[in-house]
């Protein structure tokens, strides 16, 4: 049973790894789809909670992957998930980075980069829509997301401070 779960984790995150054009955030909706809808490992709310936990911890923004693996199959799940997400793309990067570096001024590469930008933006926005609709449980939580978004966009306040305030407001019972 655990063996097949680990294989599923490996296949899902291994595939996501090579599709992660535009970095980790752009594959968030695909991970959510696989984990919540296809595999039924957790609810959308649980996924959003893991994402929040990962953001509150220091380190690569893809820590959520480790938490998903951990939730599904414990410590070995966490390790398999992280290695599967990073392995394929890292091997690809290792062997091709010099070639790409040399081709960095090629005109077709600019077109590819320019063409991928709106897709990346759309994917991250989709992730934002999925998470925000899940975490907005009422007027108050919606207001927190809106206010925090404005702070992130227009000020240089450290994100962790904003997250701490949001958590404190929740703990104080102001958002229920």
């Amino acid at each position: 049973m655990t063996g097949s779960v680990l294989t599923d984790l490996m296949l899902i995150f291994g595939q996501v790894s090579l599709l992660a054009f535009g970095g980790g955030n752009s594959v968030l909706p695909e991970m959510q789809r696989q984990v919540v809808e296809v595999q039924g490992w957790m609810t959308a709310r649980e996924f959003a909670a893991l994402y929040a936990l990962a953001q509150a911890a220091p380190g690569p923004n893809m820590l959520v992957v480790a938490l998903v693996g951990w939730q599904v199959a414990g410590l070995s799940g966490a390790l398999v998930a992280v290695l599967s997400l990073c392995g394929p793309s890292s091997v690809l990067t290792y062997f091709t980075v010099r070639i790409w570096f040399r081709l960095r001024d090629a005109p077709w590469r600019r077109a590819v980069q320019a063409g991928l930008l709106p897709i990346t933006a759309g994917l991250i926005m989709a992730g934002a829509v999925l998470l925000t609709t899940t975490t907005t449980t009422g007027l108050a939580t919606g207001a927190v997301t809106a206010a925090a978004t404005a702070v992130f966009l227009f000020t240089r306040v450290h994100p962790l401070i904003v997250l701490a305030i949001a958590a404190a407001l929740g703990a104080g019972g102001f958002l229920v």
């Binding site: 955030n25 968030l28 959003a48 909670a49 994402y51 929040a52 936990l53 953001q55 509150a56 991250i124 992730g127 934002a128 998470l131 925000t132 899940t134 975490t135 907005t136 449980t137 939580t141 919606g142 927190v144 997301t145 809106a146 206010a147 925090a148 978004t149 702070v151 992130f152 994100p159 904003v162 997250l163 305030i165 949001a166 958590a167 404190a168 407001l169 929740g170 703990a171 102001f174 958002l175 229920v176």
Partner: peptide, 11 residues
Amino acid sequence: GGLAAGASALI
């Protein structure tokens, strides 16, 4: 609940 609402704002 609060933390998650803040994390949504991040993305």
